[in-house]
Computed example of a mutant assay.
Amino acid sequence: MSDSPRRGFVIAPGKVVPRYLRDRQDQLAEAGTIEKSKWAVLTVLFVVTGAFGMPLLWRSDRFSRLEKCFWGVIVLAYTAALLYGMVMVIRWSVGDAVK
């Protein structure tokens, strides 16, 4: 051991991202999110979630406010029509079961 002063450095916790996390963050940034594609958002709204996908529509920056209002009304009407159709099928099937 020498008597020379030691030099060191301290890394504050959470300031340096490990390499494996940096690589993952870069991959996610390149892939983008579903909100970046109008067609992906509309597909999710009409095929997968219906009205439950409205937050995805409103979070997307690809749609203008007017487009968001338009698609919001269309999706709500579509969801209401699906629910009405489901109620009618249930009433029909219960009616057949009672007879």
Rank of each mutant, 00 (worst) to 15 (best):
F70C: 09
F70A: 14
K68Y: 01
L76T: 10
L56A: 06
S64G: 06
V75L: 11
V48L: 13
Y84P: 00
R65G: 06
L45E: 04
G53E: 03
V73A: 15
M54E: 08
R59D: 14
L56D: 07
T49E: 15
F70S: 08
G50L: 07
A77L: 15
T49K: 13
L45V: 03
L66N: 12
R65K: 13
F70L: 14
V47Q: 13
F63S: 01
L76G: 07
F70D: 07
A80D: 11
L56P: 02
V73P: 01
L83A: 15
L66P: 02
L83Y: 12
R65E: 14
S64E: 02
V48N: 13
T79V: 07
V44T: 09
W58Y: 12
L66G: 11
F63P: 02
L82D: 12
E67I: 03
E67Y: 04
S60C: 03
V44M: 10
V47R: 13
L56H: 07
P55C: 09
L57S: 02
A51K: 14
W71C: 00
L56W: 03
L66D: 14
S60R: 01
V75S: 04
F52M: 11
A51N: 08
Y84A: 15
C69S: 11
V73G: 10
V73N: 08
F52Q: 12
F52D: 15
A81N: 12
A81M: 12
L82C: 13
D61I: 05
